[in-house]
Amino acid sequence: MEYVSSLPVTLVFIALFALLQIPMTIVVGLRRVQTDTHFLDGGDQTLLKRMRAHGNFTETVPISLLAMAAAEIAGAPHLLLWAGGCALLLGRLMHYGTLVNSGFGNGRAIGMIFTMTPMLIFPGYILLTFAGLNF
């Protein structure tokens, strides 16, 4: 059975980000078991870092993927979609790694720049396309 999608690039990134969220969720749960913390962070800085890294991922990835899907539906070039998806992936990995390991650092800021770039480019492409500017 062959499956043809109108969102081939976005579907790849949805799958990758869904898979990435699994270990992020697990490490939060494992730390909860280790510290016997059932709600909030219990004052445990390691748990707090893991929760914020997971939370920030959860706050930024879904809207980015929706914007990516909308851009793909609007006819965005595959190169733009791949570049934006890779930037988002790199950004999320940098931000997560820095936040969990040290809590601060340039990797966190650079990760957010890589995250925000597709969050700006995909909706920008859509709005410019609907304004009549074709690329």
Rank of each mutant, 00 (worst) to 15 (best):
E2V: 15
Y3N: 11
V4C: 07
S6D: 13
S6K: 14
S6M: 15
V9H: 00
V9F: 02
V9I: 10
T10K: 12
L11A: 09
V12L: 14
I14Y: 09
I14K: 10
L16V: 15
L16Q: 11
F17V: 12
A18E: 08
L19W: 12
L20A: 06
M24E: 08
M24V: 13
V27F: 15
V27P: 09
V27T: 15
V27I: 15
V28T: 12
G29C: 08
L30V: 13
R31P: 08
R31I: 06
R32F: 10
R32N: 11
R32K: 11
V33P: 07
T35G: 12
T35V: 14
D36I: 13
T37V: 15
T37I: 14
H38A: 15
F39H: 13
L40V: 12
G42C: 09
D44H: 12
Q45L: 08
T46G: 11
L47G: 09
L48Y: 15
R50H: 12
G55T: 09
G55E: 08
N56T: 09
F57Y: 12
T58M: 15
T60I: 10
P62R: 01
I63M: 13
S64A: 15
L65T: 05
L65W: 02
L66K: 03
A67V: 01
A67I: 02
E72L: 01
E72F: 00
A76H: 05
P77S: 13
P77Y: 06
L81T: 00
G84T: 05
A87W: 08
A87T: 11
L88E: 00
L88A: 01
L89P: 06
L90W: 08
L90I: 13
L90P: 06
G91R: 02
R92L: 02
R92N: 00
L93G: 03
L93V: 12
L93S: 07
L93Y: 05
L93K: 01
M94E: 06
T98H: 08
T98K: 11
L99Q: 07
N101H: 13
G103S: 08
G103E: 04
F104M: 12
R108Q: 09
R108I: 10
R108P: 05
R108D: 06
I110T: 09
G111N: 04
M112R: 01
M112L: 04
F114A: 09
M116T: 04
T117H: 03
T117K: 01
P118N: 01
M119Q: 04
M119I: 03
L120P: 08
L120S: 07
I121Y: 03
Y125H: 05
Y125R: 03
I126W: 00
I126F: 01
T129Y: 05
T129F: 07
T129W: 06
F130E: 11
A131V: 03
G132W: 05
G132D: 04
G132P: 04
L133Q: 12
N134R: 14
N134E: 12
N134H: 14
